[in-house]
Design a protein around this nucleic acid. Structure first.
Length: 435
RNA sequence: GCGAACGUGGUGAAGUGGUUAACACAUCUGGCUGUGAACCAGACAUUCGUGAGUUCGAUUCUCAUCGUUCGCCCCA
């Protein structure tokens, strides 16, 4: 029989790692809620044009990375390679923009799919968390989104997050700049790498991203976007930077930051972080402003701004830096029945502690030696052990042992929850603190 | 899509063209009838990612395939 394996570029999440994902996602959600964002769940499947028109035909994502197929009804569908375009479709179709006050602020979490070569921090199915703030053109809207993203990264414990920021300007600026780049590179393109030659045709802006050393000097000499910004775009960008400074958000301007999705205009940004181990996962998050995306999808002419995080990358970085130690599974109590006859009584005790006490309790279903059960309790990081045998069943009591202190007492079942509260408080009180 | 390296038990790993594939950790059993860090004895890969070829014989050589990792590209 053929071995059953997971699909290339996908990965399973389980055990402590699953806790890590839950923790990261919950923290992201709760901070987004504080910033007055609301959750939204677009479908994984969309009609292909949502992404082709949204993300852009010239983008690598659309050109070679989409999971596109025909369903049984002959519809051409695509597994979402990102959320933004699908959310725009959702907003347009449900007319969510028809409200008395914009922006409309939405957050999302879920899997996205890209057909790429898997590598460190790169998967074919991975999870993104992100937000979209739609319908208001204020530069403060851009700023708020950046602040939100930065706050999340800091709250996760990441220090020295690098924010790279740039502006692509409005349509007018971009057209001017594109022409200037074309004019400049026309004289050099013969001597540049093959990728640059194709970028020259498709999207000259992308040449700025080229990493081939021989091409760098040529690129250094290229015109900069700054000189081609319209007055409006320049002012807008200045206001963004001014607000970031007022809010004490550190950033660095990177004039060659371009982004690979076609819908971006004006402000674009990326969040970079290098783990202490030195692993470079690339950008852990990125985003920007988009002016024409919604009208491109048949909606009103409203701008938006958003970012997305790669959850896998963030979890990896946190793991590398030892910031996930608190995420291990821990039991409050492990129940150890000494013989078959004690099993049902033990289960009753377990249910009492769970339902009345609210404790995380597990019980041993196997008839193994007591010593063995202690080992299992240690593996499960149980704080207390509860031993139940013939005597306890007879007396309707229980032996309660604090595994850290190695002290034990016998308690009647009626008093168990109260006694447990007391001991638990004494050993582990005021340790838990939720944000 | 291009270039390269790697693939041995639950885990970490040694190793060789030839009859039983080291070692360590983990796990389990017994020594110890109801109390966990030790010790002793034992169990634990019909098999070295998969398939084919070379060979008297391959885990070891060759090819293919799949997978992982790295660089490029691109991206989260």
């Amino acid at each position: 029989m053929e071995e059953i394996k997971n699909v290339k570029g996908t990965h399973d999440v389980y055990a402590d790692e699953n806790n890590a994902y839950e923790k990261v996602e919950n923290l992201m959600k709760s901070i987004a809620e504080i910033y007055a964002y609301q959750g939204v769940r677009p479908p994984v499947l969309e009609h292909s044009p949502v992404f082709v028109r949204g993300v852009g035909e010239g983008s690598d994502i659309v050109r070679k990375e989409m999971y596109t197929f025909l369903d049984k009804g002959g519809r051409e569908l695509t597994l979402r390679p990102e959320f933004t375009a699908g959310i725009m479709r959702l907003v347009v179709q449900n007319k969510l923009y028809a409200t008395n006050e914009l922006p409309l602020k939405l957050y999302y979490v879920g899997p996205v799919f890209r057909y790429e070569r898997p590598q460190l921090g790169r998967y074919r199915q991975f999870n993104q968390f992100g937000v979209e703030s739609i319908g208001h053109n204020s530069p403060l809207n851009d700023v708020e989104v950046i602040v939100l993203a930065y706050t999340i990264l800091c709250s996760l414990g990441l220090e020295n997050v690098k924010i790279k920021i740039n502006t692509l300007g409005d349509e007018e600026s971009r057209n001017n700049y594109r022409n200037a780049l074309k004019a400049y590179f026309a004289g050099h393109i013969e001597n540049m790498c093959v990728d640059c030659k194709s970028r020259f045709e498709i999207n000259p802006l992308r040449i700025l991203d080229c990493k081939v050393p021989e091409d760098r000097p040529i690129i250094e000499g290229a015109p900069k976007i700054g000189a081609y910004l319209s007055k409006d775009s320049q002012e807008r960008f200045d206001q963004v930077l001014e607000a970031l400074e007022a809010l004490q958000i550190p950033y660095e301007i990177n004039q060659s930051l371009v982004r690979g999705l076609d819908y971006y205009s004006e402000t674009v940004f990326e969040f970079h972080y290098k783990s202490k181990e030195g692993n470079d996962y690339g950008a852990v998050g990125a985003g920007g402003h988009y002016g024409k995306l919604m009208s491109e999808l048949g909606g009103p002419d409203l701008p938006g701004v958003g970012f997305s995080f790669g959850i896998e990358r963030i979890v990896s970085v946190l793991k590398d830096d030892g910031l996930l130690e608190d995420v291990k599974n821990q039991l409050d109590a492990y129940i150890m029945p000494l013989d078959k006859e004690s099993m049902i009584y033990a289960e009753e005790v377990a249910v009492i502690l769970r339902n009345s006490g609210g404790y995380k309790v597990d019980m041993c279903f196997d008839n193994v030696k007591l010593g063995n059960m202690f080992k299992r309790a240690a593996n499960k990081k149980a704080k207390f052990a509860i031993i139940i045998g013939e005597n306890e069943v007879k007396e309707e009591s229980v032996v309660l042992k604090d595994l850290a202190k190695q002290e034990q007492i016998t308690v009647k079942v009626e008093e168990l929850v109260d006694k447990f509260d007391e001991l638990y408080e004494a050993s582990y009180g005021e340790e838990e603190e939720e944000l």
